[in-house]
């Protein structure tokens, strides 16, 4: 008798994974939800009091930054980062798929350095990179005859600066997913397209993109949820400044919970982030639900 006739046995096999998932994902999510309904401080974790929606109301009333400002900055940060991640990642994946390109694995490994490095390390590295007096970037700009800029100090430049760092950091992730997508294409399709007279552009638009579109979508969704949570790099480069112009929702949460010790309000911000992630998860599930056309 197979497992198909004894479904409980199947569940037993996945039980360890379910327990682990519950411990690592469900429990923290429920905990953060519960803590968001409490008046709870880092210095007084044992004396939490139920506060209802107080933390959410305080969040709506917050002024420095407002919830709307932090959300707006987050969406800007995420949108621009993800667009460039996917575009550059897909472009690099195509370049590395060209048959005559040598050392493909070496290139891929090289790209991965920025992905595997800790965000805080990257943040501090770029903080010195952007430093106005002794920073490498301004040094190079002076060599090139350009005027040095105040990368982390100028309210207009700080957000672009951290987005550039985040783009550099996140491209390898897209590269890996897009590479997997391109490798899933049967090469006979290329041959057939060439026989039909397709040029490189038509090959890209009518063969590659239609086939890898699910990979692109997966990349966009996972990258979006991941980028919403980036805070350590921003913390190191700008600290959320100047004038809170780089204080995204994730950094706002970190500051409230761990810098100011207001765990209740930090949790409320965490719930907002969780809700955003759930929205993207729902989109993901809708597009990838069982029964959908497979590659």
């Amino acid at each position: 008798m197979g497992i198909g006739r004894r479904p409980m046995v199947g569940y037993l096999y996945i039980l360890p994974l379910l327990v682990l998932l519950g411990l690592l994902s469900v429990y923290p999510a429920l905990s953060v939800l519960w803590m968001s309904l409490q008046s709870i401080e880092l210095a007084n974790l044992g004396a939490a009091e139920f506060a209802g929606l107080k933390n959410y109301l305080l969040l709506l009333k917050s002024t420095s930054p407002t919830l709307g400002e932090a959300l707006g900055l987050s969406f800007l940060f995420v949108f621009v980062s993800v667009v460039f991640h996917v575009f550059i990642g897909f472009s690099l994946a195509n370049l590395l798929a060209i048959p005559w390109v040598k050392g493909k694995n070496a290139w891929r490994n090289l790209y991965m350095i920025s992905w595997v490095a800790a965000g805080i390390v990257i943040g501090y590295t770029f903080r010195f990179f952007f430093e106005p007096r002794a920073g490498v970037l301004n040094y190079l700009m002076r060599l090139a005859g350009l005027a040095p800029r105040s990368w982390a100090a100028d309210p207009k430049l700080a957000m672009p600066a951290i987005i550039i760092v985040n783009i550099w950091r996140g491209v390898p992730y897209s590269l890996i997913i897009e590479t997997a997508g391109l490798q899933s294409i049967n090469t006979e399709l290329y041959d057939a397209a060439r026989v039909d007279g397709a040029n490189a552009w038509q090959m890209l638009m009518r063969v590659k993109i239609p086939i890898v579109k699910d990979f692109l979508l997966l990349d966009i969704i996972l990258d979006t949820t991941d980028t919403f949570q980036v805070f350590e790099t921003i913390l190191a480069i700008t600290g959320g400044g100047p004038l809170h112009q780089t204080e995204t929702l994730a950094l706002y949460m970190y500051n409230q919970a761990f810098r100011y010790g207001d765990v209740g309000r930090g949790s409320a911000i965490g719930v907002v982030l969780l809700a955003i992630s759930i929205v993207f998860a729902v989109i993901y599930i809708r597009f990838f639900r069982p029964g959908k056309e497979e590659l």
């Binding site: 690592l24 994902s25 923290p28 974790l45 991941d226 765990v263 982030l273």
Partner: peptide, 16 residues
């Protein structure tokens, strides 16, 4: 929610 989840998890486990 990888990072946030882990931060909350660590906090929760320490307390609980």
């Amino acid at each position: 929610m990888k990072k946030i989840g882990m931060m909350v998890f660590v906090l929760s486990v320490f307390v609980s």
